[in-house]
Simulated scan of single mutants.
Amino acid sequence: MPSIPTPLLAYLRLRARVVSRQLRELGWWRLVLLGALLLAFAGGALRQAAQHPRGQWAVPLVLLGLVWSAHRRRPDLVFLRAAGPDFRLGLAAEYALLALPVAGALLALGAGVGAGLLTLILPSLAALAGPARERTPRLRRPRSLFRSEAFEWVSGMRGVGGGLWWLALLAGALWQHATPLGPVLALAGWLLVVLSCYGTPEPATMLLLAARRPESFLRRRLVLALGYAALTAAPFGWLLATSPAGPGAAGGAAGLLLVLTGLLILIKYAFYPNGFLIRFSQGIVIGFVLSQPGNPVYPPLLAALLGGLLWQSRRRLGQFRYDEGGRE
């Protein structure tokens, strides 16, 4: 039996220590809460996919897309490239180990062996990708429709092409206006676009320049985010209200959109400045809510999340103040 190369073992041990440190930083109660959400979300999605003859083949493709996107955002890619010529082998092994529980669950739920093996192997191909290109700053940019203080909306929408996505989703909602599913899917798609804007933490200097109390800083961030979310989602809400679903469904969908947008803000500052924990937590919460609409556990769960994240975000932001109320 061939032995595992020593550099590969050293890399995997290093990654295990980094992940364990990040989990300890997450805290046991947040780990339990997010772990329960992850199991509920992933378990339900895998159960439905495994029982569908074509859906099971979508699992390896979706997993590859997720791993590919996370791989290109890794801040240590430049270091790993300089550390040794075989760094891609370690990355491929790491991604295969991450995919192993998903492949095992898919097989246990009744999927075919081919789909399970593809789920195990395909994410390793993400190791071939390079880091995301850094955008070259331009001296002149077109004037944004959003206030510069709402920098997530200004830079984020430019980065993901938010205006084009908004027009495309609106066109799709208009096309499927006769059924409630079109506007609902458009709202969900727009929420994912907004999610991409709030997944990257800003530099700490931007927090220091604000020089506000955590309560006022959070209040301002929430007012801007919820205001722009309401304005941009208003056409989708109107289409849903005039569809067979009616105004009641439109009000419920709009309210859920605003609650989830607020959760994105609170999660961002509750785990600031750890980008991995921010994106991981945001993805679990949004994925769980969108995958199981109408779940009766939503009201108490959202209330617990809002309370815990509000407390943690205020506590975290209190460490980034240079005024007389801040910490040394």
Rank of each mutant, 00 (worst) to 15 (best):
T261E: 09
L301E: 10
L231E: 01
A225S: 14
T232K: 06
L302K: 10
G227R: 05
L239H: 05
G255K: 00
Q312F: 00
F236Y: 08
G318D: 14
G248A: 15
L260T: 00
Y272R: 03
L258K: 00
P244A: 09
L290N: 08
L306W: 06
Y272N: 13
A245M: 05
A253F: 00
G262S: 04
L277Y: 10
L258R: 07
G307D: 02
P296K: 01
P273W: 02
G262R: 04
A241S: 04
L256R: 01
V285L: 12
R316D: 10
V259F: 04
P293Y: 04
G262T: 06
P273L: 14
G246I: 08
G287H: 05
I265C: 03
N295W: 04
A245R: 10
G252M: 14
A230D: 13
I265V: 15
W238E: 13
G275Q: 14
L306S: 07
P244Y: 00
P299Y: 05
A229D: 14
G252E: 07
N295D: 15
G283K: 02
L305M: 11
L317M: 10
L305Q: 05
L317N: 03
L260I: 11
Y298K: 03
G275S: 14
G294E: 13
S243H: 08
A253R: 10
L257Q: 05
L231D: 08
Q312V: 03
G252S: 14
L264I: 13
L258P: 12
L264T: 13
S291Y: 04
G227V: 12
G308A: 11
A225F: 06
S243E: 04
L277I: 09
I265S: 00
G287L: 08
K268W: 01
G246F: 02
A270L: 04
N274Y: 13
L231W: 00
V285G: 10
R316K: 13
T232F: 02
G308R: 04
A253Y: 11
I284D: 11
W238R: 07
A303F: 12
G246V: 08
A304N: 01
G252H: 01
S281M: 14
R279D: 14
N295A: 15
L264S: 14
L310F: 01
L277G: 12
I267H: 00
A230G: 15
G307Q: 00
Y269D: 13
L260S: 05
Y228V: 12
P300C: 02
L306H: 04
